[in-house]
């Protein structure tokens, strides 16, 4: 219970305790209108995203959940300017995704840790800082700070292969955090990890979110993970990829792991499951 007591203390100090649960009062950070993306393939067009409308406010933790092929990763990649939409509008931090990328407005965490095997953990975390031209002193400070944030202090000199999968993924989160972008885009970051490590990292991620006040977009296909982490859950369905439901979480920001057995939690999980079922036809 010491952990939750500590975070309660952190919460009372936090200026964001009075955050409304539904409509974001803060200006929207990511907003999509009628967004569509169609891939042209040899078998005809594939509608990866179809008429997506979305508004993500500052400080939100938004999960995208849906079966594979529903376009949740594609949507994240469109936000990151790694894919180009074919129709509709999208803005990130009030500008086009490309300008947001050029302004280094977000950190991206991939499904795999994607650490450079020839760099130590500290060098990996320092990579974006090197590219962005931070001074050596500043790099050192930021690496130390972000590694502390993901509980990897003491592993600076290790190479990726010397770390477990969970630790590698934490290092990759540190790397995405190191240059202090306001937005964190995470594409199934814990998908390849086992349940126990995943629970632990979920808890740490919430704590980190609380401390850094970032806007997080989180792709997952785990219902408990989505409900546990999010302030809003975007339920998506495939063929064509579209949003079927957006659920505002009524859970408090303070979330010990055992909140997952509360009726409120199960209620939200149930609604997510219903949304997934409604959007997904099993006759294919």
């Amino acid at each position: 219970m010491t952990k939750s007591a500590k975070s309660v203390a952190a919460k009372t100090r936090s200026p964001r305790t009075a955050k409304p649960s539904s409509k974001p009062a803060q200006p929207s950070v990511i907003s999509a209108k009628d967004l569509s993306l169609t891939f042209q393939t040899d078998d005809g067009p594939v509608h990866a995203l179809s008429n997506i409308d979305l508004d993500i406010g500052k400080g939100d933790f938004v999960s995208f959940i849906g079966p594979s092929g529903c376009g949740k990763t594609t949507l994240l990649r469109v936000i990151a300017d790694l894919e180009q939409p074919t129709a509709g509008e999208i803005s990130v931090n009030g500008m086009s995704p490309e300008n947001a990328r050029l302004a280094r407005a977000y950190g991206y965490v991939f499904q795999a840790a994607a650490l450079y095997p020839w760099r130590t953990i500290e060098k990996n975390v320092a990579l974006p800082l090197e590219i962005m031209g931070y001074s050596a002193d500043e790099r050192k400070k930021r690496v130390a700070r972000t590694l502390e944030l993901v509980n990897l202090t003491g592993f600076e000199k290790k190479y990726p292969w010397q770390l477990s999968g969970g630790m590698q993924q934490r290092a990759s989160i540190a790397r995405a955090l190191s240059f202090d972008a306001d937005i964190l885009l995470m594409d199934e970051p814990f998908g390849a990890l086992d349940e126990i490590v995943r629970d632990h990292l979920n808890e740490q991620l919430l704590e980190l979110w609380e401390r850094t006040n970032k806007t997080i977009c989180f792709v997952t296909h785990s219902i408990p993970e989505a409900v546990y982490l999010s302030t809003r859950i975007v339920v998506m369905s495939p063929r064509p990829g579209r949003v079927t439901d957006i659920i505002e979480s009524t859970l408090p920001r303070e979330r010990p792991l055992d909140i997952r057995e509360s009726p409120e939690f199960l209620g939200i999980a149930h609604r997510v499951r219903e949304g997934l079922r409604a959007g997904h036809s099993y006759d294919e």
Partner: peptide
């Protein structure tokens, strides 16, 4: 693709991608 995408999210140019990613990977 993942490592190249990562460089793109950092808005890294061709030269940076070459020296920081392609060269060490090719050794």
């Amino acid at each position: 693709g993942l490592l190249l995408d990562l460089m793109r999210t950092y808005n890294a140019g061709r030269a940076v991608t070459f020296w920081k990613l392609r060269v060490p990977a090719s050794l």
